[in-house]
């Protein structure tokens, strides 16, 4: 299978092997939850997906990336639900004949996903304890 899409509940597991016959470049990107948003400490991000549109749009984008950049394989994994800081919420793996088209496809996919795939994130801020009088 050359296009794989998965939306999983919670943080993503560690990456598994992503081999591809004939590929000269394997490129992987992982999105990790930062410890702050808008300069405020957070404990997690909650992802909300409009399904099945989110699945369908990710699949459509992956197919477009395959054709547009001549990729050999693409695998997209995205979290929904709560993902704590330092955990992985998004992984994009691309196999291509050469690095240039793979790197270009990576940027294009992520930019387009952030515009067209209905997945929203809500930061869960650390509750500030009231200081003792």
């Amino acid at each position: 299978m050359t296009v794989e899409i998965r939306i999983e509940s919670g943080p993503l597991d560690a990456a598994t092997s992503f081999a591809c016959d004939g590929a000269g470049a394997i490129i992987a990107f992982e999105g990790i939850i930062r410890p702050d948003e808008q300069d405020r400490p957070i404990e997690a991000i909650e992802y909300e997906a409009y399904r099945p549109m989110a699945d369908e749009k990710l699949h459509e984008l992956a197919e477009q990336a395959m054709q547009r950049y001549g990729l050999k394989r693409i695998r997209v994994t995205h979290s929904e639900g709560r993902v704590p800081i330092d955990a992985c919420s998004f992984r994009l793996e691309i196999a291509s004949a050469h690095r240039a088209e793979g790197l270009e496809a990576m940027g294009w996919f992520i930019d387009t996903m952030k515009r067209d795939v209905p997945i929203w994130k809500r930061p869960r801020f650390v509750q500030q304890k009231e200081s003792a009088p």
């Binding site: 999105g31 992802y47 997906a49 409009y50 549109m53 989110a54 995205h78 919420s89 998004f90 992520i110 996903m113 952030k114 515009r115 067209d116 795939v117 209905p118 997945i119 929203w120 994130k121």
Partner: peptide, 10 residues
């Protein structure tokens, strides 16, 4: 029907 905009997954 759904309103979609300002998405920011990833």
């Amino acid at each position: 029907l759904a309103l979609i905009g300002l998405v920011a997954g990833g």
